[in-house]
Amino acid sequence: MAEESGGLVIKPMDQFRVEALFGGDIAWYTPTNVTLWMALTVLAATLLMVYGARGRALVPSRAQSAAEMTYGFIYKMIEDVAGHDAVRFFPYIFTLFMFVLFANLLGLIPFAFTTTSHIAVTAVLAFTVFFAVTALGFILHGTTFLKLFWVSSAPLALRPVLALIEVISYFVRPVSHSIRLAGAMMAGHAVAKVFAGFAAALGAFFFLPILAVTALYALELLVAVIQAYVFTILTCVYLKDALHPAH
C-alpha cells in the first residue's frame, strides 16, 4: 500500500470492512454493519413499494407512480426476455432487483457500507439463481435440458468442442454474475476513496479531486442502477435458458 509515501495515506479498502455494531468478535449471528445496511435496504424498498403505493389512487402520486413504474419495468423485462411463463417467478426476481438496486444506491451515501460490494453477498445471490435455474431446467425438461449444451445447428464435428465450451460458460455464469456486481461496486467506491485521498494531500488544489469525485459520483449513480438492471436481466436470461433450453 501507499503507506511509505509520506503524507499520502489512502486506504481505499477500509470502507468495505465488516464491523460488529456493538463491538466484540464477529460470529454468524452478530449484528454488524452488514445487518444495518441490509435492514436499511429492506426498509427503503418497503418504503417505496408499500408506503409509496399506499394511496392506491387511480391517478397516482409521485411515489406511487415510481413504485408502479418499477413494477411494470421488471414485469415487462421478464416477459420480454424470459417469456410469459416466467412471470410466476416475478416476486423473487423483483425482490432481487429491489435488493440490489437499493443496496447499490444506499452504498453511495458517504460513510455508508455497500453490502453488494462483498463477493460473499453477491455470490449467494448469484448461486441461488444458478442452482434454482439449473434445478428448474432439470425438473421441467429432465435430461433434454442437456440439449442446451449440444448446439444442434452446428456441424457435427464441432459439436463436442462447442458442448465443452458451453458447459464451461454455463458454470462460469454465476462467477461472472456475482463478480460483475461486486467488482463494479468495489471499483467505483475504491476510486472515489482514492480521489478523496488526493484531495486531502493536494492542499490548495483540493478542489480538483473534489470535482473529479463529483463527476465520478454521477457515473457511480448510473452504474448502481445499471448493475442492478444487468443483474436482473441476466437472471431473466438464465431463467429463459431453463424454461426454453432449445437453441
Partner: peptide
Amino acid sequence: AFLFIGIAFAE
C-alpha cells in the same frame, strides 16, 4: 436489453 446484456458481458 441486448445492448445492456452485451455491455455486461464485455464489462
